[in-house]
Amino acid sequence: MTENKKQEFWRWEESSWKNPDIKWQDSGYITVGIDVGSVSSQAVIMTDGEIFAYGNVRTGSDSPYSASNALNFALKDVDMPEERINYCVGTGYGRVNVPMADRSITEIACHARGANFIYGPEVRTVLDVGGQDIKAIQCDEKGKVTNFLMNDKCAAGTGRGMEVFADLLGVSIGEVGDRSFQFEGEDNVAVSNVCVVYAKSEATGLLRKGHTTEQVLAAYCEAMAERIYSLVERLGINPEFCITGGMAKNRGVSERLMARIGLKAMKTRWDTQIAGAVGAALFGYSLCLKGKGRITQEV
């Protein structure tokens, strides 16, 4: 089997960030949340429940490696020894394979808790569209889950479906959102909103009939929005509403989805992809406060 070496349009940039105002030496509990997703992995380092630093990397074929890669990315500019960490929680699709984790917690619980932090306690509905699943979660003012559903059986509506389209159309994943609005003429072309395989063959047909790449992108973004909407609607839509995960960065889907829902999505200054890892680190902090942290010399 030969590896396909053509340009990979679905790729995106890895990143890291740190808060220059926090001195880890002065803090009490340092907790880490590592979210190993199917496509990306994030490590968030928190000092007493505040975000200190994070790294966002692509998930490789090996979960343990991806987890430590994310953590190293977060640690690379902060000059803090790994031994200083009081508690580490793994979450996400690869959560049972995070070697440095003290325990694992599901992404459902972590996303609700993380969204509560990065969007504020008024959040009631959290939609997370990940690379391989869609999670719709309702939570209370403490970020505790009250109702959830997760669809990881079918690729329709997930980031994976979008990757298939980015590749098919030769559009890089970061440009999908903008380009899906850049077309002239009719916007009445449509593709299946329930099956990526069928949508793909319909798209090929549309291109052959002379529709532009932008029109087909618009059709697929709309199909994704419809599909995601059907899941959210099942759970019931409670304002305030927020979108986490990579899809929040794709305005082609998120704006079409919010137009359907008829609400404005909450905004945050934080990277939406880190919500799960933030929640995991916060659970770590709660557990430390309960006296379950690792014993370190300073604390």
Binding site: M1, S61, Q132, K153, C154, A155, R160, G161, V164, V196, V197
Partner: peptide
């Protein structure tokens, strides 16, 4: 995997 799209990656994993 149940979905054809996800099964494709599983098949690639089996090849590897």
């Amino acid at each position: 995997a149940q979905c054809a799209i996800f099964a494709e990656s599983e098949v690639v994993g089996l090849i590897h």
